[in-house]
Design a protein around this nucleic acid. Structure first.
Length: 897
DNA sequence: GAATGTTTAGTTAGTG
DNA sequence: CACTAACTAAACATTC
């Protein structure tokens, strides 16, 4: 390549009679142009990768040669990066290179023109497609069952796919196609044909009908919530959109790791940037009736971004936030496919919950999220809603967090410990700590009903044991964990939002990994951690980079963080999400293993801009992961925060990455590996209140257990629906326990923490679910150790509100156990109210400290924020920030992601 | 009464 | 064929 680049470029330029400067200029123009027409761009990117590639290649080459990374370069950079990636990864679009070589001379101009034409075509196609889709939708009625796995998936793809045509298509395809290579995981289930009729059986008529109608509008009921997919765009956009989140996540993780396909790495990045907005705690869906939100995300400014080519220049504004204001969760970018997601309900729940900064949402919010992101599900439909509730109730990983009534209904949270279960946007029970535990003890074989099983199996005693263990762990956590763990739990409000990815970060990973990725949120945590981490890191990994300040910085960067402090969580969240790039970084987190492509987190650099959120952010990183199939090389990823793509596809899509934010990170191989640890404990007990159960706690929290391979496989399969079985990840365990980790704050916790003690109305069910565990420990500083019984604890606690029970529950605080910790933190820190939470924080909290710093930094200018970190890498990377639109979308998801 | 949550029962499908 | 996972349905209970 080098050869080409150097000479060819100059040749081309000469031929064209253009100077580099001009070239840049032109590229900028192009970009803008494209940006304007997002759809077009997206399409172009997808489809015409060739064209794009050609243009890009030119630019790229130019940029490379020049090294000038002017903004113009960005787009290119993306391309280039992709190209690079491509090289490694098979799948990546072949196209790129070709164009360049082939038609060099002529094309130059052509490219622009072509692009334009393409745009036109794209638009037309879009329109056409739209029309088709609508029609199709009508026809399609029943969706395949989610479960029915494959079929549905395919369906989506198929349905649209066909129409869409573009390779992007759904993630599924994406996976396959993209990673076509990869397909390994999913391949198993190729995407089947789109809808399976049979399934209809399960689905009620209404479902079908609704689906159709969905486009139109949602349901009567209140929910404004779902605005329905925002855009029809989706349609137009070929593949990309469609599966955003789920796929993306899954894809990313799963595919990546498994496959070597380098692309995966890229994908990771993509995780969606969700924007998080924070909503108040309100129960009801925050969504405005108008529900711009949905659309906005996608459609709005950014969407276009999607691709490519153009990068985004300056997209600037983040309109989004406004639109979404109030949303307590982040939404993945991109158009939302109306097709039924392949993911299981549990996966959807995980995506939804993890999209929130605090990793917790009310049922209502969950519904909203789902309806927005997966227009397939309409409000008012009983089936899926019932199923959702069912899953929430029966799945151990979904912890019920009771809170003051005044605050609203209970929150459903995912603890950090369980993040692994949701890696990749999918859901794997096996990874659930509780389940793991169970398995060991009872050997129940993780069953579905975790809860039940748990109940049955677990003995209450375990709780104590667990707690103790937890304590112990906290005390002597492995180094590994330390860094990763988020120290501070984000309260709900917290913006960080590190996606669960962050949380997922392998403990083992040295700080490096940790770093930047965790954006803001992480930042906090990390800060806290950082200290510890530093130690750890030093100890642990020499890896690539020692904890450099830089990294840390990165963490710190978290622009948002500053915000956090200042702003109320919600605000923060939104802003944060949006603005803070970092937040999304987390997603990147690689998990361990291979799979998690996300890896990323590690050395990522984030553009200052990105951090700011304002401008497009690009983050670039290089991944060295093993994941990729052992790519020893470093892979460069770009992540877009916002852009549409989902998570998944990215691979090929460079385009996908494109824009928004590109992240590059490098992850040392070494880093990736992690072990698990699971431990965790917690247990939840289910409670059935009255009846049966006592809650059981899994006996041994011990770590090791993780899923059995067998199970894993199965799980993978099962989960597959999601698409990707994240499998590999095993290693990455979430931080949970990290030593420090214990940070209390895991997002999860937060809520509870906020609440502090009070909360729980009924101790029973909710209580257990939510509390089960550790929380108690955490909650009380002193007690932390003790509380075996939450209830008791509560009683003991003076603090506890009057209600004994409730108190107990409160004690139970959902917080993840790990947090415990310590020392530092006062349990209290958690904010009470969403809004207020901050106030509550302890001064001592690292979080606070971080915030302050962030603030300062922010004030100064994001620019650098973390910058330091990135600066270096970036340069090396060549990336420019894309400016893409999304710039901000900080969120990311977390995720999802 | 509606929204939530919890449970139980039954179906389908994949896997060993 | 047995298991298990994922879903669907529905009955019940609780809360607002």
């Amino acid at each position: 390549m080098a050869d080409r680049e150097a000479s060819p470029i100059s040749q081309l330029l000469n031929t064209l009679g253009i100077t580099r400067e001009e070239l840049h200029r032109r590229s900028d123009q192009m970009r803008q142009f494209l940006t304007a027409d997002s759809t077009y761009s997206s399409r172009v990117s997808d489809r015409d990768s060739s064209s794009k590639s050609s243009s890009a290649s030119l630019l790229r080459s130019a940029s490379l040669s020049t090294m000038s990374a002017s903004t113009s370069a960005r787009s290119f950079s993306r391309a280039s990066s992709s190209s690079m990636m491509d090289a490694s990864p098979p799948p990546s679009t072949p196209i790129k290179s070709e164009p360049v070589d082939g038609s060099l001379p002529q094309r130059h101009y052509d490219t622009m023109e072509e692009v334009i034409e393409r745009q036109r075509l794209a638009r037309k196609e879009r329109r056409d497609r739209k029309g088709r889709r609508d029609k199709e939708k009508n026809f399609k009625t029943p969706r395949s069952h989610p479960r029915s796995p494959s079929p549905s998936a395919s369906q989506s793809s198929a349905g649209f796919g066909s129409s869409l045509g573009s390779r992007d298509e759904r993630v599924d395809d994406g996976n396959r196609s993209n990673s076509s290579v990869a397909g390994s995981h999913e391949e198993g289930r190729p995407s089947p044909p789109p809808l399976t009729p049979q399934q209809s059986k399960y689905y009620r008529a209404h479902t079908a009908s609704q689906s159709y109608s969905s486009l139109v509008k949602v349901n009567p009921k209140r929910e404004s919530p779902t605005p329905i997919r925002p855009q029809s765009l989706p349609v137009s956009q070929p593949g990309l959109h469609y599966y955003y989140a789920p796929y993306s996540l899954s894809t990313l993780y799963s595919s990546v790791p498994a496959n070597d396909e380098a692309p995966a790495a890229v994908e990771l990045a993509t995780p969606t940037p969700t924007r998080i907005i924070k909503a108040p705690a309100s129960k009801s869906s925050p969504l405005p009736p108008s529900s711009p939100p949905p659309s906005s995300p996608v459609s709005s400014p950014n969407k276009p971004i999607v691709n490519l080519v153009s990068s985004p220049g300056p997209i600037g504004p983040l309109p989004v936030e406004d639109e979404y204001d109030g949303l307590p969760y982040g939404l993945p970018p991109g158009p939302y496919s109306p097709n039924k997601p392949e993911c299981s309900y549990a996966a959807l729940l995980g995506q939804a919950i993890l999209s929130s900064p605090g990793h917790r949402l009310t049922l209502q919010e969950i519904y909203d999220w789902i309806t927005i992101v997966y227009p397939y599900f309409k409000r008012g439909e009983t089936t899926w809603m019932n199923s959702i509730r069912h899953v929430l109730s029966t799945t151990v990983c979904f912890r019920k967090v009771t809170r003051d009534r005044s605050l609203g209904r209970t929150l459903w949270a995912i603890w950090d410990e369980d993040l692994e279960c949701f890696k990749g946007g999918g859901f794997r029970k096996q990874l659930c700590n509780d389940i793991k535990v169970k398995d060991k003890p009872n050997a129940n074989g993780g069953t579905k009903r975790s809860r039940k099983t748990s109940e049955g199996g677990g003995a209450p005693k375990n709780k104590k044991a667990k707690k103790e263990k937890e304590k112990e762990k906290a005390i002597s956590p492995p180094i590994l964990s330390a860094p990763l763990l988020p120290l501070f739990p984000p309260s709900r409000p917290t913006p960080h939002h590190q996606s669960y990815y962050e949380s997922c970060i392998p403990k083992s990973l040295p700080s490096e990994i940790i770093f930047p990725p965790l954006p803001s949120s992480s930042g906090y945590r990390q800060l806290a951690d950082s200290k510890a981490a530093a130690q750890a890191s030093s100890a642990v990994a020499p890896n690539s980079e020692p904890l450099q300040p830089g990294r840390d910085d990165g963490d710190l960067d978290l622009p948002p963080s500053g915000e956090d402090k200042l702003t109320p969580p919600h605000l923060m969240s939104s802003s944060a999400s949006a603005s803070s790039v970092p937040s999304f970084l987390p997603e990147l987190t690689p998990n361990d293993s291979s799979s998690s492509p996300p890896v990323s987190s590690s050395d990522m650099e984030v553009d200052a801009e990105a951090n700011l959120g304002v401008t497009p952010v690009s983050i670039s990183g290089v991944d060295t992961d093993e994941d990729d199939g052992g790519l020893e090389e470093q892979d460069v990823f770009t992540m877009q925060l916002k852009p549409v793509r989902f998570w998944g596809d990215s691979d090929k899509q460079e385009g996908a990455l494109q824009p928004g934010i590109q992240l590059k990170y490098i992850v040392p191989n070494s880093v990736l590996a992690t072990d698990d640890e699971d431990d965790e404990d917690l247990v939840k007990a289910t409670k059935s209140k009255k009846q049966k159960r006592t809650k059981d706690i899994p006996a041994s929290p011990t770590l090791g257990l993780r899923s059995n391979p067998l199970k894993a496989t199965r799980a993978a399969k099962n989960t597959s629906r999601l698409a990707s079985p994240p499998v590999t990840e095993g290693p990455s365990t979430p931080p949970r326990k990290s030593t420090f980790g214990p940070s209390f704050l895991s997002p999860i916790h937060t809520p509870l923490s906020h609440r502090g003690l009070h909360m729980s109305p009924s101790a029973s069910l909710a209580h257990y679910k939510s509390n089960l565990d550790p929380p108690p420990c955490v909650s009380y500083p002193e007690k932390t150790g003790d509380n075996e019984n939450p209830d008791e604890d509560s009683d003991n606690d003076p603090r506890t509100p009057s209600k004994t029970r409730s108190a107990a529950t409160s004690s139970a605080l959902p917080v993840t156990p790990r947090r415990l910790f310590s020392l530092s933190d006062s349990p209290f820190r958690t904010p009470v109210g969403k809004s207020s939470f901050r106030s509550i924080y302890d001064p001592h909290d690292p979080t606070s400290l971080l915030d302050d710093e962030l603030h300062r930094m922010g004030a100064a200018g994001h620019g650098d924020s973390p910058a330091g970190l990135f600066g270096k890498s970036r340069a090396s990377l060549l990336y420019d920030s894309p400016g893409n639109a999304m710039g901000n979308s900080p969120d990311k998801w977390q995720r999802w992601w």
